[in-house]
């Protein structure tokens, strides 16, 4: 057992930090890709079924919207535990990185859906009308015209989402998924080692900065304004 000192020991903390970074990146990236894509589909469905939308269907919209509103307000730490039976059914386990990714994906789908809906609503409906006037199908107008037109804001939205997903991953330590959050709490806070906590915080800040920078750069490339 190490003495309870306020310091950073590369030999001891270094490997732990690398493992934690790996776990966090795995959780965040897998969640962002799967949740982001499914959320895009969900968001498109929300947008299209809205009143006055391309596939306006009030009932469908109400159900889709209700589900989002149902899941979004649940604090993530509670959602992880509440979703346990479903997590086991889907991933076969209730512990570890895989088990953490499942509830993270669900929450990310819901957050992405609203984000996509908002950005599409804010996009200029004139381009849809123009595409329809040229003979585009509703699907074509939605996927090949509206989504590309809203791509810049969507990318910025995903960058924003990255922070939320990173935040969720910090709580995944609760079910043995490890990650930076777990590292900061177990090796920093629990052992009165503030330096370790600060290092974890520093790494998270760097990750967020990189993600935001990537998002900004990509958005600028597709915006053309």
């Amino acid at each position: 057992m190490r003495p309870l000192t306020n310091d950073w020991d590369w030999a001891y903390h270094g490997p732990l930090l690398w493992t934690a970074i790996g776990q966090t990146l795995q959780m965040v990236l897998v969640t962002l890709v799967i949740g982001g894509l499914l959320g895009l589909g969900y968001g498109l469905a929300l947008y299209a079924t809205r009143r006055g939308g391309l596939y306006a269907a009030g009932g469908v919209y109400a159900v889709l919207s209700f589900v989002v509103n149902l899941i979004r307000p649940i604090p993530f730490i509670i959602f992880i535990t509440a979703a346990r039976p479903l997590t086991i059914a889907v991933t076969g386990t209730s512990l570890g990185v895989r088990a953490a990714i499942f509830p993270m994906v669900i929450v990310t789908i819901m957050a992405t859906a609203r984000l996509v809906e908002q950005n599409l609503v804010a996009a200029d409906p004139g381009v849809i009308e123009a595409a329809r006037a040229m003979g585009a199908s509703r699907f074509n107008a939605l996927i090949h015209v509206l989504v590309p037109e809203a791509l810049g804001p969507l990318i910025l939205g995903y960058a924003f989402l990255f922070v939320g997903v990173l935040d969720m991953s910090a709580m995944a330590g609760a079910i043995g998924a490890g990650g930076l959050g777990y590292f900061a709490i177990s090796y920093g806070y629990d052992r009165y080692n503030d330096v370790v906590t600060w290092v974890a915080v520093g790494v998270i800040i760097v990750m967020v900065q990189i993600a935001q920078h990537l998002g900004n750069t990509l958005a600028r490339r597709v915006l053309h304004r």
């Binding site: 200029d124 004139g126 381009v127 009308e129 123009a130 329809r132 006037a133 040229m134 003979g135 585009a136 199908s137 015209v145 590309p148 037109e149 791509l151 810049g152 597709v222 915006l223 053309h224 304004r225």
Partner: peptide, 23 residues
């Protein structure tokens, strides 16, 4: 809907706000 898409290819339309695809 299908017939309309064919019809629309034969009718051009221009708009006050141009409605160009900015991307």
């Amino acid at each position: 809907e299908r017939g309309l898409r064919a019809l629309r290819a034969d009718i051009g339309m221009i708009f006050q706000q141009f409605n160009l695809f900015g991307g």
